[in-house]
Simulated scan of single mutants.
Amino acid sequence: MPDNGANGPDSVSVRPKKKSRSFWRELPILIVVALLLSFVLQTFIARVYLIPSESMEPTLHGCPGCTGDRILVEKIGYHFGDPEPGDVVVFKGPDSWNTEFVSTRSSNVVVRGIQEVGSLVGLVPPDENDLVKRVIATGGQTVECCDDQGRVLVDGKPLDEPYVVTDFPFVPGTQTCDTPVRSGRCFGPYTVPEGNLWVMGDNRSNSADSRYHVGDELGGTVPVDNVIGKAVLIVLPPSRWGTIDSPNPQTS
């Protein structure tokens, strides 16, 4: 029988060795892929934001001397529907809300360029006045304060707001919206334009929110288009891990 060289006892199968790609040659590719994934995730899906002020206490910590909460803001949901009353949202401040905003960017052109690139992939905060408040009323609704118990009204109905712990004094018969010394809670009525939101901080006595900006071009409201996303989780510090409640405060 002829020997074809495939099965003989002395035959050796020789395969060409695959050249293993060096780790250092692959590393730049891995970094680029990671940065692209980070860009996609933080631009279209979710991003972490720092709470820098106390306007949402005690729901979100940002008090002087404490560790500010870092919250996860999801961006997908509002592609399929608008914010609703009770939602805690992060939004870009309208022009009149930016008077105290100070840019975090360097005056050095090179450093500023690096910061801008870092912002795209989430390594550096965006250079914009991003704020967090709770939605109280939406387009077409009328909001005001107060009823005889000091509650906020939307379309004439009082809100149930268990998340509000600190507010201006309201004492029936002594300090209300009709007494000579008016309660600091009182405002309105204001009707929210379509496509806009009336937002307020949970720390009602220390929040420069829609009430503070009623004299501006939008009557204190925020365009829905300015909303970045909904705050859903506290991710840092570990002692504060948990979901962020968004109960609808409007009674039926």
Rank of each mutant, 00 (worst) to 15 (best):
Leu218Val: 00
Gln115Thr: 07
Asp82Lys: 11
Asp202Arg: 06
Asp82Leu: 10
Gln175Gly: 08
Trp24Leu: 13
Leu36Asp: 01
Val222Lys: 05
Pro223Gln: 11
Gln42Trp: 03
Thr67Gln: 15
Ala6Asp: 11
Leu35Glu: 03
Ala137Cys: 04
Glu54His: 00
Asp155His: 05
Ser11Asn: 15
Thr67Ser: 15
Phe170Ile: 06
Asp167Gly: 10
Ser205Val: 13
Ser205Ala: 15
Gly139Glu: 05
Lys230Asp: 12
Ser119Lys: 02
Val235Cys: 07
Pro16Leu: 14
Pro247Arg: 13
Arg211Ile: 02
Leu159Gln: 05
Ser210Trp: 05
Tyr49His: 04
Asp82Tyr: 11
Lys133Asp: 02
Pro58Lys: 06
Ser207Gln: 07
Asp10Asn: 14
Glu128Trp: 08
Gly220Phe: 00
Met200Asp: 10
Pro162Glu: 08
Asp167Met: 13
Arg211His: 04
Asp147Met: 09
Val32Ala: 15
Gly86Thr: 14
Val232Glu: 14
Ser183Trp: 01
Glu194Cys: 07
Asp87Gly: 01
Leu233Ala: 11
Val181Phe: 12
Pro189Asp: 10
Arg112Tyr: 03
Pro237Glu: 09
Lys92Cys: 09
Ser13Trp: 15
Gly122Trp: 12
Arg21Tyr: 02
Phe187Asp: 11
Arg112Asp: 11
Asp216Trp: 06
Leu30Ile: 10
Thr138Pro: 02
Glu84Val: 07
Pro172Gln: 09
Asn98Val: 06
Thr59Asn: 10
Asp167Arg: 11
Pro58Cys: 08
Thr142Val: 01
Glu161Ser: 15
Asp216Asn: 03
Trp24Gln: 08
Leu218Met: 06
Gly93Ile: 05
Lys230Ala: 15
Pro180Gln: 00
Pro52Asn: 06
Leu35Ala: 04
Glu144Cys: 05
Cys63Pro: 03
Val124Leu: 09
His61Pro: 03
Gly242Asn: 00
Thr59Leu: 02
Glu116Trp: 11
Val143Lys: 01
Thr104Phe: 00
Lys17Arg: 14
Asp167Val: 09
Met1Val: 13
Ala137Phe: 01
Leu159Met: 00
Lys17Met: 14
Leu60His: 08
